[in-house]
């Protein structure tokens, strides 16, 4: 079954003369066990699509299903719960809580989501895979951009979401790290049966993708 199913989704920002059509009827789906890339030039509508399937905002029209559930009519409170339980986000900016150590970022997840998070040894493995096992006591301000990015990835995965959504997850990683993170995404998709959707400009990730979509001017076409 598709983890995410999107049919004929349109998104218009603003009204009247100021209206911007960001999505012009997009069909998209992502299955569990797959890594899917969303690529395309700036302003094409990638983030818009990602936030709609991440239940962060609603589409102007069309149908959005997450894990079999139609979310187009959900209230913000229910969308919030859905995000907490089923979705993991790796965001471009402000990823981490500035006054929590790396370890406490995970504790915060425990506070708000009591069940279904990774076990301590699973977390340890994950941190080791990402090469950040020695950073648990540090505050985000003392981490490099790449380290922050990897902590954000770990944080998103810690809640053990079914679907992982990432906006430019490799933006500040060096080549070697990009390959590692790519492999990790692939492994998580295959072994843990997650659906992973990555918005990226980074061609180095292409070889880890099961499917690649190109976004252009609010329209989507499948390349792979």
């Amino acid at each position: 079954m598709a983890a995410i199913e999107i049919k004929n989704v349109k998104k218009v920002y603003g009204q009247g003369d100021a209206a911007t059509v960001a999505l012009k009827g997009v069909d998209f789906s992502a299955d569990t066990g797959n890594v899917v890339l969303l690529m395309g030039p700036s302003g094409a509508g990638k983030s818009t699509l990602l936030t709609i399937m991440g239940a962060l905002q609603t589409a102007t029209s069309g149908k959005v299903e997450i894990d079999g559930q139609d979310i187009s009519q959900l209230k913000e409170k229910d969308r919030s719960r859905l995000r907490l339980n089923k979705l993991g986000f790796i965001l471009q900016a402000y990823n981490l809580v500035p006054y929590l150590t790396v370890k406490e970022q995970f504790q915060l997840v425990d506070k708000v989501k009591k069940t279904g998070n990774l076990r301590q040894e699973e977390l340890k493995d994950l941190l080791a895979d990402l090469g950040i096992e020695n950073l648990v006591k540090k505050y985000p301000e003392n981490l490099s951009g790449g380290q922050k990015q990897r902590v954000a990835i770990a944080r998103a995965m810690y809640a053990n979401p079914k679907i992982l959504l990432a906006d430019e997850p490799t933006a500040s990683l060096d080549s070697e790290r990009v390959e590692e993170v790519g492999r990790l995404f692939k492994k998580l998709a295959k072994d843990d049966r997650k659906a992973i959707i990555l918005v990226t400009h980074d061609p180095r990730l292409e070889k880890y993708a099961d499917h690649i979509y190109d976004m252009m001017d609010g329209q989507l076409s499948q390349r792979k």
Partner: peptide, 16 residues
């Protein structure tokens, strides 16, 4: 607030 936006995005309840 900017920080809270991230937490809301991650599904942390407004109540918290």
């Amino acid at each position: 607030l900017p920080n809270y936006a991230v937490l809301r995005a991650q599904g942390v309840p407004a109540k918290t």
